[in-house]
Every structure is written in structure tokens, then in C-alpha cells.
């Protein structure tokens, strides 16, 4: 058995934190992604421009850089804003929130593309049919559009979540005590880098397997009422 020199519980805590950051960033990313997709599809020029800039910039610069920018940059901007309102209070972004924002921004940019594709994939005729039945626009959105978008977007979002789960390791650079950082601390104590980074790899693989299985179940549920027309 591998000797973890008593760092086992710390690694477990780190893994729990990793999952928390991933879920938080996913929640934020879904909101951002939906909003951005809606802006892209709205046809209102300034909104389309903002949405396009956001997705292009975020998808073109490294996740590590986004983390560093949010962590070091945001606090300066926020404090600056607070000071311009005459407050000399500090505005604090905890490492957790900074990490969630940085990863959520990235997730949102990719998710918006997935959502956009999914919205476009729902045939227009269905919305027309809903209107013909007298559904209000909000009602039709909620009852007709969203469930289908969810089903179509789920595989793409699932892939993004798996990417996100791995990207959480980058937040360690900003001082968040998730799995990667806990591992580095253990390494600096034990001087056994191989042992601990290998253990971390296995833990990440385990999380990936669990998430893949969970996504599979979610996809099955989302597809319950749906049978493909072609008998493949």
C-alpha cells in the first residue's frame, strides 16, 4: 500500500473542494452561456457584438491567464470602484469566488456555443405550433424550447464539465486549496513528488469516471420522451 504520510485526509478535503469549485463554476457558466446564447440569437447588433467579443476573447486566451487575471486584476478593479464611491473599505473576492468566476467565464464562453447550436436545432415549426395553440412566448420557451435545448445540449455540456473539472487544477496557482494545491503541499513535506502527483492523477481519473457515469444517467433521463425518427 502507498504510504501517504498522513496526508490522506488533506487530499480528500482537496478533492471535495475541487468538486465544489467545479459545480460552482458550472452553475455560473450555465447562466452566462444561456445569456450569451440569447444575446447572439437576439439579432440586436450591440448585444451580438458583446456576446461575440466575449466568446472570442475567452476562447483565445489560456485558462491559466484568465485565472491569474481574475485573481489579481478583479480585486484591483473592484477596490478601485469602491474607492471612487468614496469608500475605503476593501472589496474582497475570496479565492473560491475568484476561482469560480474565472472558470465560470471560460465555461460560459464554450457553453454559449453549445446552447446556440441547440436552440437552432429546434425546428421553428414547433414554436409556431405552440403559438397556434395559444401558448404565450414565455410559456412556449419554458415548455417547448427549453426541455429540448437541454436534451440536445447535454452531451456538449457534459464534455465541457469534464474539461472544467480538470481546469480546476489551475486555481491552485491562485491559492485555492483544492486537490492540486494540497498535493503540492504534501510534496513539499514528504519530498516524494512522484508518489503524490501519481495519487492526484488517480483521484482526478476517479472523479472523471464518476462524472462520466452521472452524465450518462442524466442523458438517459433527458432522452426519456424522445425516440429518434430514423430507426438506427
Amino acid at each position: 500500500m502507498i504510504d501517504l504520510h498522513g496526508f490522506g485526509s488533506q487530499l480528500a478535503m482537496g478533492a471535495a473542494m475541487t468538486v465544489e469549485i467545479a459545480l460552482g463554476a458550472c452553475a455560473l457558466g450555465l447562466v452566462l452561456g444561456l445569456g450569451t446564447a440569447a444575446m447572439r440569437l437576439s439579432g440586436i447588433k450591440p448585444l451580438v457584438g458583446v456576446a461575440k467579443t466575449y466568446t472570442t476573447v475567452i476562447r483565445g486566451i489560456p485558462e491559466l491567464l484568465v485565472v491569474l487575471l481574475v485573481y489579481f486584476g478583479s480585486a484591483r478593479i473592484l477596490t478601485g470602484i469602491a474607492e471612487s464611491f468614496g469608500s475605503d473599505d476593501y472589496v474582497e473576492l475570496s479565492p473560491f469566488v475568484a476561482g469560480v468566476i474565472a472558470l465560470g467565464l471560460t465555461f460560459g464562453a464554450y457553453a454559449s456555443e453549445v446552447f446556440r447550436g441547440a436552440f437552432l436545432a429546434v425546428p421553428n415549426g414547433q414554436l409556431e405550433a405552440a403559438r397556434a395553440l395559444g401558448m404565450s412566448q414565455g410559456h412556449a420557451f419554458r415548455r417547448i424550447l427549453l426541455p429540448q435545448v437541454w436534451r440536445i445540449a447535454l452531451p456538449g455540456l457534459g464534455n465541457l464539465f469534464l474539461v472544467l473539472l480538470k481546469d480546476t487544477s489551475l486555481v491552485s496557482v491562485a491559492g485555492m486549496e483544492e486537490l492540486m494545491r494540497k498535493t503540492s503541499i504534501a510534496v513539499s513535506f514528504t519530498k516524494e513528488p512522484f508518489t503524490f502527483y501519481a495519487v492526484a492523477t488517480v483521484m482526478y481519473l476517479g472523479m472523471t469516471v464518476i462524472c462520466t457515469a452521472a452524465l450518462h444517467i442524466m442523458e438517459r433521463r433527458a432522452n426519456l420522451g424522445y425516440r429518434p425518427l430514423t430507426t438506427a
Binding site: A75, R76, E92, G175
Partner: peptide
Amino acid sequence: VTQDWDGIIPGLLAKK
């Protein structure tokens, strides 16, 4: 508060 070294002064300035 623990903070990586190369961000330790920016962190102070940002009132962390």
C-alpha cells in the same frame, strides 16, 4: 491568509 509568493504584494494592495 495563505497566498502564493508572486501574488503576495498584489494581494495586499487588493486588501485581501
